[in-house]
Design a protein around this nucleic acid. Structure first.
Lengths: 345, 345
DNA sequence: GTTAGCACTCTTTAGTGTAGAGTGCTAACA
DNA sequence: TGTTAGCACTCTACACTAAAGAGTGCTAAC
């Protein structure tokens, strides 16, 4: 529906605006880019593009800036999948080598490098929703009155809580008890164990309420530990170097959004189905970021969603670059994760 | 060294400026406060106070604002220990009742209420530096190749790591090993155990490097877990509602400071010796907050520093109110902590 | 010692003029 | 019919000016 020339002009305007943050005028285009047509012709095309809703004009004597519709068209139809420069690739590779010790480090490092390369805020959500299977339990002695109740899953996770020993109960009785309960629960998915399932165990404990509630507490604690979502933010300061966020009130508003961890989580979880998701300006349903764009990608391991990466910035964002970076990071995380699980074997 | 009248005028200027954030002029004072003297007299006194270094003048035709020296004098000599309003007390009491489940909740809640009542940023540093004594270790079975190494301290803390079982070694051999090492280490302060101390243990393991390094790893992991300082921030957004922080660049600078967790920790740890510490404006040695004041208090339990509370804001701070709030919170945390350890008994 | 009076200083706000950038329209051209 | 040169027009940004307002410092009188 757009002519080749219109597409060309639109792309130039978008990319020039992304680079300079200044409205783009017809003369600028004619001067900077060699299209072989005069400013007047460009003006006519721009006028048409504005009617079609692709361009906005801040005021009569300013150049044009791209509308949300233009960015959408740009992302969907104009961008060709680019690749990173060798420099960028080397930067990322070294980045991880120096920093990664455990899983949290991976997410943390990813947040940092992502914000650094995108010059915007990065959000990394670690979904630790893994469903492990219950293996066995033990009471480790502590003192006369207390013991440590340990739950162990088949994949080697362990959780514990301190319990009161019923008066007069000996360690061998506790061991017996642990064995019996273990027999009942062994091999069960951790998240299917609830107070009802534990009811059988209750009989083992012969109605000792304290012991039972401790057991329940340890189980739910472990379940929650598994479900935990962790959010890593990077580059808040950088975001406020963007020329669109130089106003104190705007900064405060954005800070408000970034402080609400739950809102951020909701935002990231809203688009976990597709591979890569770009939400542009007014497409955002969350208040406070309607002049922002967000690019997010989920990262899966063995089919399970392990994390979500996202970059949040002004609609005037380097979509091409950010998308390439996220693409690469997605692949890279795979490698890093595999290395890590190798190391744990 | 100051006359009664000078003290009175100084106090009025400070408190008026704290309340309004506007330079205070001689006519304003004469109009608002009934001192029985004319603006001209007040002007003379103000002139003297300026010479003495207590007042500054932004420009010739503006009123006066208090200098750091004035705030210092105010805090040291003019403030009378005030008490909170019943409203405030009720607010705090309810605040904790609703929110506190575990230790981290206490710190988190404290940060929130502190920032809310001070209208500035609150910092709460939880020093978890407790030195527990090593009790015993165990190898819990996991699978043919791996076991879970558990370290238990006398106060019931437990830490673990997954270790490779040397080829062909049986569980009873592991148990034997654990018993022997336990005999050597039992009762030792956790932080005195290092690779040298573990050398004896090394002989027990008969030179198995893997096992030894796992043991070392578990011990250091546990030591680090003990040392962990945790920082809770509250009310960043509120700080930027203060009229002195309405400039985008100033906001960015402050954000930079608040993002540097290590700097904040150093700031808080710098004044842990005294009970209550007020650092005013240029007294601050950390860059970026030289127009800020910080009020901090350490919270001790059984003589050990458990946490540090602090409020960071512009030098124009409601010292009186903040000091009372921190006073109260300090006492209140004591109560909450005791309740918590009661519950754990 | 206190105070009224007054000149002086400085900020703030509104208003004016100008340069510069960019557009839209029209008429001429290929 | 598409393209372009030319020109009037619009709007912003910036500099400059003027006037109002707040507050001081000084002096002379009480």
């Amino acid at each position: 529906m757009l002519s080749d020339r219109q597409r060309q002009i639109l792309q130039i305007i978008i990319e020039d605006y992304i680079a300079t943050a200044e409205p783009v005028g017809s003369r600028t285009i004619a001067r900077k880019y060699n299209l072989g047509i005069s400013p007047a012709t460009i003006r006519n095309e721009m006028s048409d593009l504005e009617l079609l809703g692709f361009l906005d004009q801040p005021h009569t004597s300013a150049g044009r800036i791209p509308s949300s519709k233009a960015y959408r068209y740009y992302v969907d139809s104009l961008i060709k999948p680019g690749s990173l420069t060798p420099n960028d690739i080397a930067l990322i590779d070294n980045w991880y080598k120096e920093r990664v010790r455990n899983i949290d480090d991976i997410f943390q490092s990813t947040a940092k490098i992502l914000s650094r390369m995108s010059k915007n805020v990065s959000l990394v959500l670690a979904n630790k929703e893994t469903t492990s299977k219950f293996s066995y339990m033990r009471f480790l002695p502590l003192n006369e009155h207390q013991a440590i109740l340990c739950l162990i899953t088949e994949d080697g996770q362990i959780d514990n809580c301190v319990v009161e020993i019923p008066l007069g109960m000996q360690q061998d009785e506790l061991d017996y008890l642990a064995r019996n309960i273990t027999n009942k629960l062994h091999g069960m998915n951790l998240d299917t164990i609830d107070s009802e399932v534990l009811h059988d165990a209750h009989q083992e404990i012969q109605g000792d309420k304290m012991l039972f509630s401790s057991l329940l507490k340890a189980v739910t604690q472990m379940q929650q530990g598994q479900k935990k979502e962790k959010m890593f933010l990077g580059g808040t300061k950088q975001l406020f170097n963007q020329p669109e966020f130089q106003d104190a009130n705007r900064i405060k508003e954005l800070l408000g959004v970034l402080e609400e961890e739950q809102v951020l989580k909701d935002m990231l979880n809203a688009g976990t189905n597709s591979g890569l998701r770009v939400t542009i300006g007014s497409e955002n349903t969350f208040t406070g970021i309607q002049d922002c764009s967000m690019i997010q990608a989920t990262y899966r391991l063995n089919g399970q969603v392990v994390g979500t990466l996202a970059v949040l910035g002004p609609t005037r964002m380097e979509y091409k670059k950010v998308i390439s970076v996220m693409d690469y990071l997605q692949k890279y995380m795979h490698v890093v994760f595999n290395k890590m699980s190798e190391a744990n074997k």
